[in-house]
Design a protein around this nucleic acid. Structure first.
Length: 195
DNA sequence: GACAGATGAAGGA
DNA sequence: TCCTTCATCTGTC
């Protein structure tokens, strides 16, 4: 059994037509996103006892807050600004559009390999899909296809980091941490019909 | 160090 | 076609 969300995160609800998502923020940015009705979203285990190292990643469209020190207390971060960006981005993705701007993403506690996989996924546009093998080739590890699947499953920020755009070979649906129903719905919004 | 995993490809029925 | 098997790589415990 994996651990639930870190207690050091601040959770804020996001009401959408699809239900209420839960965004969790650390001092470095958006750390986790829970699907509506998720019992306890299985977030990747964060290293224990310490402040986040410098693994905060910033999406290509996000240039602000790029040098935020990891030791900033939660009370001192622009949480409302990040949350506004998160809400807007989530609503755009749910509508099948590309988010204009993403908040800083805190991928603290994750590996370089996982982050490279997620960065590759962030470059996918709505309606644009890749297979696990293609993602593996994109990051320069063509034989690490199974590991790419593992990294997708470890993605703490689904929807915004579009792991739903990664399909299995032959455009089969593959799997999805939030449930295949969500993957199907998200892809349908973008006009993608898996095999 | 062993094991599991959101795969991919090849071979056989 | 569909199913099974195996190779491969990475993360987790």
């Amino acid at each position: 059994m994996k651990t639930a969300a870190s207690p050091s995160l601040i959770a804020l609800p996001i009401a959408t037509a699809e239900g209420e998502f839960i965004a969790r923020y650390s001092a470095a940015g958006l750390a986790e996103l829970d699907f509506p009705n998720a019992k306890a979203f299985v977030a990747p285990k964060r290293s224990e006892g310490g402040q986040p190292p410098s693994s905060t990643l910033h999406p290509p469209s996000s240039s602000a807050q790029s040098d935020r020190p990891s030791s900033v207390p939660l009370s001192a971060v622009p949480l409302s600004g990040w949350h506004r960006l998160t809400v807007a981005a989530l609503q755009n993705v749910l509508a099948g559009r590309a988010p204009k701007k993403l908040p800083p993403l805190d991928w603290f506690g994750t590996t370089e390999f996982q982050q490279s996989v997620w960065r590759a996924m962030l470059r996918l546009k709505p309606g644009q899909t890749r297979s696990y093998g293609e993602i593996a080739r994109l990051i320069g590890r063509p034989r690490a296809v199974r590991a790419v699947g593992g990294a997708c499953g470890a993605n703490p920020i689904p929807v915004l980091v579009p792991c739903h755009r990664v399909l299995a070979a032959g455009r089969r649906l593959g799997g999805f941490g939030g449930g295949l129903d969500w993957k199907r719905r998200l892809l349908a919004r973008e006009g993608v019909v898996p095999a």
